[in-house]
């Protein structure tokens, strides 16, 4: 499916999705509350069949967090990005997708570790790189490390 067809198909069953203009991939913006239903559909509908998640990350935009899901279909060879906006900066949380793509297990743990985004129903949500009682979440923009030396 090319980019236009993808957009049409997605809008057909999920009208609340907003697409970015231009960009490298098809960028679907959605609220974090609805992301699990969208991603489940994208994985399960044979027309999409996004079976390979090649990147999952988060970006701290200060006013909100955005989860990035980079998806690829190995059968149809098309790709897209789902961006889920998390408005709550104090206690960010989103549904886990680790039961859909197993790779998300570790990647979500990484995001939880470095951004402090909670993942509901994640099977094993612990910090992956840092110590359990490490203060703060290093990749947040407001993170300050007292030991950091400015060069």
């Amino acid at each position: 499916m090319n980019a236009e067809e993808l957009k049409q198909e997605i809008l057909a069953f999920h009208p609340s999705v907003v697409f970015d203009e231009g960009g490298q991939f098809v960028n679907a913006n959605i609220d974090a509350a609805d992301v699990l239903t969208l991603l489940t559909e994208l994985r399960n509908r044979p027309a999409f069949d996004f079976d390979y998640m090649f990147c999952l990350t988060c970006v701290d935009y200060k006013t909100h967090f955005t989860m990035f899901y980079h998806l690829r279909s190995l059968t149809h060879r098309h790709e897209m990005v789902v961006k889920a906006k998390i408005a709550d900066v104090n206690a960010p949380a989103v549904d886990t997708v680790s039961h859909i793509w197993r790779t998300a297990d570790f990647m979500e743990r990484e995001v939880y570790d470095l951004f402090g985004v909670k993942f509901f129903r994640h099977p094993d949500l612990r910090r992956i790189f840092l110590d359990e009682n490490w203060p703060g979440y290093p990749l947040r923009k407001n993170y300050e490390d007292p030991n950091m030396i400015e060069l």
Partner: peptide
């Protein structure tokens, strides 16, 4: 860069 993310192959391979 505002944010850089490296999708490293080993991270996913290790998870398996």
């Amino acid at each position: 860069p505002y944010r850089v993310k490296f999708r490293s192959p080993n991270f996913s391979n290790l998870s398996a």
